Simulated assay, not measured.
Amino acid sequence: MTYTTGPVRQGDSAGEQCRFRTDDHPPLTDQIEQLLSTNAPLPIVTAGNPLLRRESERYNGRLPPALLSRFIEALRLTMHAAPGVGLAAPQVGVPLRIAVIEDPAPVTEEVRVARGRVPQAFRVLVNPTYEPIGPTRAAFFEGCLSVPGWQAVVARPAEVRLRGEDEHGRTLDEVFTGWPARIVQHETDHLNGMLYLDRAEPRSLSSSQAMTERWTQPTPKEAAVALGFELPR
């Protein structure tokens, strides 16, 4: 997930080579070893690649601990390099239910208040699921490292309960609100074969240039009026 415009390592060809199906050879561990062999940010799979439209496999401890640790660190490095505030394993061609999130939230006080965007420490989400808490929905522009150059307004639950595990197998059962809630929903959706565009307001779709020139406000109210779409009440 991204909310800034920056260079993205587009890796469709690499993604096509790393389908990670259970009947592929060599085994999954060998394929991930190959993916990590460069010690560089991983190529990011972009929209149009079927890998992003498949439900990821539940992680059941099939990777050796040292390899899992290296893979998580590679996800973190790639997320920072993109730059983004979240990255799911399918976005680098690995269909496992693993994602990482981190947001230093370098925004103004006005944006922080309007969006509920507060710093989010680095976290690893394994087999995450979420459910809304209450009826309140919040709509803001979202972007995605797998859909470079575009953003659109997505209305999401303002508060969610996230369940899953961390990278050590410890149970996660937490409530996320504001911008962190948006991030965990976005990344969990990736693990279910969904892109933010599936939930977006189509008339809000805007290029990076349009975002820079027109829609830098803390909320999308002006964009809704100008582009002709409704925001949740």
Results as ranks from 00 to 15, higher is better:
163 R>L: 03
192 N>S: 13
106 P>K: 12
60 N>P: 00
128 P>D: 04
190 H>K: 04
199 R>D: 03
188 T>W: 00
169 G>Q: 12
123 R>C: 08
132 P>R: 05
219 T>C: 01
130 Y>I: 03
193 G>A: 06
28 L>Q: 04
71 F>A: 14
177 T>P: 00
195 L>D: 02
176 F>C: 08
189 D>I: 00
227 L>M: 12
124 V>Y: 05
159 E>A: 14
71 F>G: 07
38 T>K: 13
130 Y>T: 02
207 S>K: 02
189 D>G: 00
164 G>F: 03
220 P>H: 05
76 R>S: 06
67 L>S: 06
228 G>V: 10
177 T>L: 09
103 D>M: 09
232 P>W: 04
18 C>D: 01
173 D>F: 09
26 P>M: 13
94 V>Q: 01
85 V>E: 03
101 I>N: 07
231 L>E: 06
192 N>D: 15
69 S>Y: 02
171 T>Q: 14
198 D>Q: 13
43 P>C: 13
134 G>F: 10
42 L>I: 09
23 D>L: 02
78 T>M: 07
43 P>H: 07
214 R>D: 08
204 S>W: 05
18 C>E: 08
159 E>K: 14
191 L>K: 00
79 M>Q: 12
121 A>V: 13
10 Q>W: 02
101 I>S: 08
12 D>L: 12
99 A>F: 04
115 R>V: 08
216 T>Y: 09
169 G>P: 09
225 V>H: 11
137 R>L: 11
142 E>D: 12
37 S>N: 15
208 S>C: 01
218 P>N: 07
35 L>I: 12
4 T>L: 12
24 D>T: 12
145 L>K: 05
172 L>I: 15
133 I>F: 03
62 R>A: 14
127 N>E: 08
19 R>A: 15
32 I>G: 11
61 G>E: 06
206 S>G: 06
78 T>N: 09
102 E>M: 01
216 T>V: 06
3 Y>R: 14
129 T>D: 11
6 G>R: 05
17 Q>G: 10
58 R>M: 13
141 F>M: 03
117 R>G: 03
222 E>V: 14
101 I>C: 12
85 V>Y: 04
